[in-house]
């Protein structure tokens, strides 16, 4: 299991692995927003939490279709499925690796980008907390979507169509926590809900993803 995790991380971090790409994409999306809405700091501060969350969402999505696709193409997936490791665990490890290489960098980069969007300094901690608690849900929901669409025609496009609606609850709670903090409200309830959502998806989506993979392999 550890070996698998290390393998996943090494593959992702290698050049062309997609981990850096997600981060760069996140950067671009967030930088584009001020061009779209204008440079007024007041407006930017207001939409900053939402912008960062949507950017994180899209960046997450970008590297998702590689999650099982490459392994399925070169046959690694079949070998992994034969190993004693249950398929559910395999999915969980892969999703966790996806989070480490995509979600975590976003969490770290978000405060830097928040400066450009003139987000009030005291809300940084809440923004980071909401992203840190919410991005695992994005990776794990995405893993289920990726498992369903692996090897399917136009899979990447279909993946976004299927997964983005499922991201809505996470996006709502996550962005709301950050927005409440910058608006002077109490972000705790929303933050707890984000955390709950993450735990929920971490616990359940590996089963759905494994069922989908079994159908592909079987």
């Amino acid at each position: 299991m550890k070996a698998l995790l290390i393998r996943e991380l090494r593959l992702a971090l290698r050049s062309g692995g997609g981990a850096g790409l997600g981060l760069a994409f996140f950067l671009i999306v967030v930088i584009l927003v001020p061009f779209g809405v204008g440079p007024d700091p007041k407006i930017l501060a207001q939409i900053a939490p939402g912008t960062l969350w949507i950017g994180a969402l899209l960046a997450c999505l970008l590297s998702l279709d590689r999650l099982f696709q490459t392994d399925s193409e070169d046959g690694t997936l079949d070998i992994l499925a034969l190993s004693p490791l249950p398929l559910e665990m395999l999915v969980a490890v892969k999703a966790f690796a996806h989070w480490l290489t995509t979600g975590l960098p976003l969490v770290i980069a978000a405060p830097v980008l928040a400066i450009t969007l003139s987000l009030p300094t005291e809300t940084y901690i809440w923004l980071i907390a909401s992203l840190a608690l919410g991005t695992p849900a994005l990776s794990f929901i995405g893993a289920a979507g990726a498992a369903i669409t692996v090897g399917v025609r136009r899979g990447g496009l279909l993946l976004s169509l299927l997964v983005l609606p499922l991201y809505i609850p996470t996006l709502i709670f996550g962005a709301k926590a950050a927005a409440l903090a910058s608006g002077g409200g109490d972000p705790m309830p929303a933050l707890m809900l984000v955390a709950g959502l993450s735990l929920f998806t971490v616990a359940l989506t590996p089963f759905a993803a494994a069922a989908a993979l079994r159908s592909h392999l079987g």
Binding site: V152, R153, G155, I168, A208, S215
Partner: peptide
């Protein structure tokens, strides 16, 4: 998008179940 009928049925059923869970979640979230 899926050619093999049984596989398509499997995958869409799984999607439907996930979607149902998230439909309830979305409802409360919204």
């Amino acid at each position: 998008a899926v050619d093999e009928p049984d596989k398509a049925a499997d995958l869409t059923s799984i999607l439907c179940l996930i979607g149902s869970v998230f439909a309830v979640l979305s409802r409360y979230a919204v």
